[in-house]
């Protein structure tokens, strides 16, 4: 069995990974402000909501098994409840900024906030 617990190489490795991770986080953070929440079930988009335009509490229950209940209000969207076992989706909390994501794996449902508004305007 080896003796060394921590050495130069370990330090370099940790530093490199930390720097890369922080870089990515900052790159993401400077993305444009927006407010479209996209709900995807099984790889297809079932709903897109402009969070800024939502004035009253909107409840979405996609046709999934286990069933999940998604609520959008006050510029936020979140998994209110779920029949799945771990309830990781519910524990993720409220999403409001672009990039924010909550996932329910058993229900194959992804809720995430994308950039700012429609792809184009027709006039």
């Amino acid at each position: 069995m080896k003796n060394r617990v921590f050495g130069k190489v370990d330090l370099i490795l940790i530093a490199a990974v930390t720097v890369c991770a922080l870089l990515f986080i900052f790159m993401r953070g400077s993305a444009s402000d927006g407010g479209t929440a996209v709900i995807t079930v099984n790889s297809s988009v079932i709903e897109e909501l402009n969070l800024k335009e939502i004035k009253e509490r909107t409840v979405i229950t996609p046709d999934t098994d286990p069933k999940v209940t998604i609520v959008a209000e006050n510029g936020e969207i979140y998994f209110e409840s779920s029949e799945c076992r771990d309830k990781i989706c519910v524990r993720t909390g409220r999403l409001s900024k672009p990039g924010d994501t909550a996932v329910c794996l058993p229900a194959k449902t992804v809720v995430s906030i994308t950039g700012s508004g429609p792809d184009a305007i027709t006039y």
Binding site: C20, F24, T40, N42, S43, K108, T109, S112
Partner: peptide, 12 residues
């Protein structure tokens, strides 16, 4: 499982 690339948002 989800078919969504958004899960990689968690990566960093």
């Amino acid at each position: 499982i989800t078919g969504s690339r958004m899960t990689f948002y968690y990566a960093p």
